[in-house]
């Protein structure tokens, strides 16, 4: 029997993907710190849920959760311990690795039943296969590694009561600031993303990108040149130091296609580019491209889209 321990941070798409992948490897035990996460685990086929009750745990950064997960991993002694590749998931994996003196792998884009992991290297231009050679497989799974597929189960629920030790109270979360999400779909989960780059030229003109996104029901993204220039807020940046997206459709307007930008969008199913430079690298990866001025091309496309709706 292969035992898989999965950290389920919330009820989002990424967590559902990790649970879906874990199910292909063996029997899944999920660790949930709230009810929404616990019920997601049941929707996605977990055999068991460790429902952790730890009052005050969210007032502190990483440490108390790391202690809970490390203790559970020690007790369960799983063959795999999988977490989503987010800042928190990676931090928790790192803490577990040192505590249990076990290796770790990050940002897996796949994990086969024989334990072979796939990772993207060098902004996704190289695909690496790797394997744990000692201990158990402790790994974080990248968003988009698999399609989430529900498989409702009635997991056995074990309540774990934990207290936050004083030694885990060193990093206080003094304030949580959530910027308003707006009406558009979340960037990392959107089916369609329309991004603008330096070629958009100003914050005002990003309204054109927003109009195209809204006409298609998509999210708005931006290149780093656009966020650095203040055309659009940083949280919408797509790429290596921004968000990684993997939508059905990615539209890049006024974006050259630098390697660090491609790192964040190259697994999109369909890529469309609008750029006035026929030699822009983005055309090398586009399924459909228009060489032209985005201020001519996009308004005309919008008109045609409205007509066809």
């Amino acid at each position: 029997m292969t035992d898989i321990l999965v950290y389920v941070p919330n009820s989002g798409k990424h967590a559902a993907e990790v649970l879906t992948l874990a199910r292909t490897l063996g029997d899944v035990s999920a660790v949930a710190f709230d009810d929404a996460s616990a019920s997601l685990a049941g929707e996605y086929g977990a055999a068991k849920v460790y429902r952790v009750e730890a009052p005050g745990i969210d007032d502190y950064f990483v440490d108390p959760k790391a202690t809970v997960l490390t203790d559970l991993a020690r007790k369960v002694a799983p063959d795999y311990f999988l977490l989503p590749s987010t800042d928190e998931g990676k931090a928790l994996a790192a803490r577990t690795a040192v505590a249990l003196d076990n290796g770790l792998m990050t940002d897996l884009s796949g994990l086969a039943p024989d334990g072979t992991a796939t990772q993207d290297a060098f902004a996704g231009t190289t695909i690496v296969t790797a394997k744990a050679t000692k201990g158990f497989t402790l790994a974080t799974i990248k968003l988009g590694a698999t399609e989430p597929a529900p498989a409702p189960s009635s997991p056995e629920v074990e309540t774990v009561n934990a207290t936050v030790a004083e030694s885990d109270q060193r990093v206080k979360v003094a304030q949580r600031v959530d910027e308003p999400a707006g009406d558009r779909p979340a960037l990392s989960e959107a089916r369609i993303v329309v991004s603008g780059g330096r070629g958009v030229g100003s914050a005002e003109d990003f309204a054109l990108i927003e109009r195209v996104a809204d006409a298609l029901g998509g999210a708005v993204g931006a290149s780093r040149a656009a966020t650095d220039a203040g055309y659009y807020p940083h949280k919408f940046q797509v790429g290596q130091t921004g968000t990684t997206v993997s939508p059905q459709l990615y539209v890049a307007a006024g974006i050259s296609g630098a390697i660090q930008h491609r790192a964040g969008m190259q697994t999109s199913r369909v890529i469309v580019a609008v750029n006035k430079d026929a030699d822009a690298p983005i055309f090398g990866m586009a399924d459909f491209g228009v060489v032209g001025d985005l201020f001519q091309v996009l308004p005309q496309a919008l008109e045609e889209i409205e007509k066809r709706k």
Partner: peptide
Amino acid sequence: ANEVVGAAAR
């Protein structure tokens, strides 16, 4: 604790 066993260009 882990080993890269293969690599290929995307």
